[in-house]
Design a protein around this nucleic acid. Sequence first.
DNA 1: AATCAGGAGGTGG
DNA 2: CCACCTCCTGATT
Length: 299
Amino acid sequence: MGMGKQPGPDSPSFFTSVNAAASPSSSGMGSASPGLSGVPPSRLLLPPDTVLRTGLEKVAVGAGALGPERWDWSPSPPATPEQGLSTFYLSYFDMLYSEDSSWVAKGPGASTREEPPDEPEQCPVIDSQAPAGSLDLAPGGLTLEEHSLEQVQSMVVGEVLKDIETACKLLNITAAAWMKERTSLGAIHYCASTREESWTDSEVDSSCSGQPIHLWQFLKELLLKPHSYGRFIRWLNKEKGIFKIEDSAQVARLWGIRKNRPAMNYDKLSRSIRQYYKKGIIRKPDISQRLVYQFVHPI
DNA sequence: AATCAGGAGGTGG
DNA sequence: CCACCTCCTGATT
């Protein structure tokens, strides 16, 4: 009968284990931040007119989410936020940079992997002390700084999420309700187009209202934010719902973080995608290509 | 070597 | 119960 399976990672810190899983190359440690020096030290600083009362508001603003007035801070995009809160503040970014023209439909044969050089990869910084953790250069093309950044952001965002969840419970509201209340920008339902249950709505809800996010939702979430995740996953043909996973390890890593599954990898993620075949959610495009999938019901 | 396809058992919400 | 997660075998690129 079923031999036991070993939950491989007895992970102390899932970041490290994830990195280990994603990249077997461990070369010592990069002390966290040589390159962070040139960055403006005001990332968590707030415009003075921001009304700060509760810690809840504070953290959200710190994450860059709230800009009821306007966003005066420099438009350097976040590198790779991964926790649920990114759902909030990245919405603003990718709205502002609605670079929906970058995914110009390429024929199935013409998958040149080089994107036009309009990648504004300025390193965003949450200006607090970087963790002394060791970071390797992952195969995803992430620089050392981006990785340390990711860790910092993840830690911050993790705490933020906890706070928000706690606050939501106390207030007996969902984060979506709270955000709508706070922002009055309608940004959250900016994607409420043809479908009743747009992914954007559900994604916001999924961040705090208990219901776990589905993989297909997550993928669309990433696809909706090309500015943040375009290096990892992007549309090949948005109308047809065809997308390509450019960096399988990174997408899997993000998914693992989102689901709190440190041992996630592309093998497992792709297995889950394949489960969608039968359900008619995702399929392989007519001309099958590696790492290319298609939503059966594109928006 | 990486990806793909799908069976099968396990698990957490 | 469902939506994965995990592990696996074998095929394909």
